[in-house]
């Protein structure tokens, strides 16, 4: 098991795998990158369990596949998970708190992804408390990372306390993840307000785990409803897809599974982040049962 996870020669090659670099995580900042700064994007939600970490893993991987230098930062100190979602849990030596406290250099804590050499993870500390770092320190760290990377994707912890305040401290942009459930949408609204209070204006929304058949029956808020309620710009919609769980089981971001519908959805999101105008995907993959149900008279009620 651990042998498989630490195997760095999985043999796959992606568009992002453009140049071979030394094994040291980040070699010295290349000359042409000096004074250039990348985009720092925080992924947040308020409510736990809506898919922030999965979104971070997939957006990070997608941006790297598109050829960008990407660092994913797990800001969930004490409850780290991003490492296990992308299958790098066996490679962690140092963590975020040790970098901030100066126990180790930033570059020695960065872990290179086993599939793409332009994708890195800065893991959270597992045995420390969220209060071990302050927003100013986190901001400084983000600035330093932005010197070296095109994208710094910060996975925020749930909640609105210190950990959240740390995670947003260094961000230029924010993405709010929600699901079409009342509690998640309510928290997303709270978070949107708090982001704006912290000068992170116009956050973008990802609606996760949408179940088209439930929306069709009228038993789930549809995308239009959620956007109307939250009044923020939509970045993308992810259908509820069992392949996300399968991908997490294997420690491989679902975006790499070309057959998955969630992968298409995440790829669209990545392209939108890169400025492309991507039309919304058709979420409905109708089975026979759905098609029959659609023709039934109860549809009128919806």
């Amino acid at each position: 098991m651990s042998g498989r996870l630490t195997d760095s020669n999985s043999g796959q090659s992606y568009a992002g795998k453009n140049k071979v670099t030394e094994d040291v995580a980040t070699s010295d900042v290349p000359k042409d990158r000096q004074n250039k700064t990348g985009r720092v994007i925080v992924i947040t939600s308020g409510k736990g369990g809506v898919g922030k970490t999965t979104a971070t893993a997939n957006i990070g991987t997608g941006l790297a596949r598109a050829g960008h230098r990407v660092c994913m930062v797990d800001a969930d100190v004490g409850l780290r998970n991003l490492d296990v979602i992308i299958g790098l849990e066996n490679r962690i030596v140092y963590d975020l708190v040790e970098v901030i406290e100066g126990t180790c250099k930033l570059r020695s804590a960065l872990i290179r992804d086993k599939r793409m050499d332009n994708l890195f993870l800065l893991p959270a500390a597992q045995t420390r408390d969220k209060d071990a770092i302050a927003p100013e320190q986190f901001k400084e760290l983000c600035l330093e990372l932005a010197q070296d990377f095109d994208f710094v994707i910060v996975d925020s912890p749930a909640g609105i306390e210190q950990g959240f305040r740390n995670a947003i401290a260094g961000a230029d942009e924010a993405i709010v993840v929600t699901t079409p459930e009342v509690s998640a949408v309510r928290d997303a609204d709270r978070i949107t307000g708090m982001l704006e209070a912290n000068e992170l204006y116009a956050p973008k929304l990802i609606i996760n785990r949408v179940r088209p058949e439930m929306v069709r029956r009228g038993d789930m808020m549809d995308i239009k409803d959620v956007i109307e309620i939250l009044a923020i710009e939509l970045l993308g919609v992810i259908p509820d897809d069992p392949s996300i769980i399968v991908a997490a089981n294997k420690g491989e971001p679902v975006i790499l599974d070309s057959k998955s519908r969630a992968a298409i959805a995440y790829d669209n999101i990545v392209r939108r982040i890169l400025g492309e105008d991507v039309p919304p995907m058709n979420l409905q993959q109708e089975g026979l049962l759905e098609r029959l149900r659609r023709l039934m008279p109860s549809r009128k009620a919806n």
Partner: peptide, 17 residues
């Protein structure tokens, strides 16, 4: 439908929030 109820309830609760 419960989706509509969710929307209406949320609309109200968010106004207060």
């Amino acid at each position: 439908p419960s989706g509509k109820q969710a929307k209406e309830r949320l609309r109200l609760v968010l106004v207060h929030d």
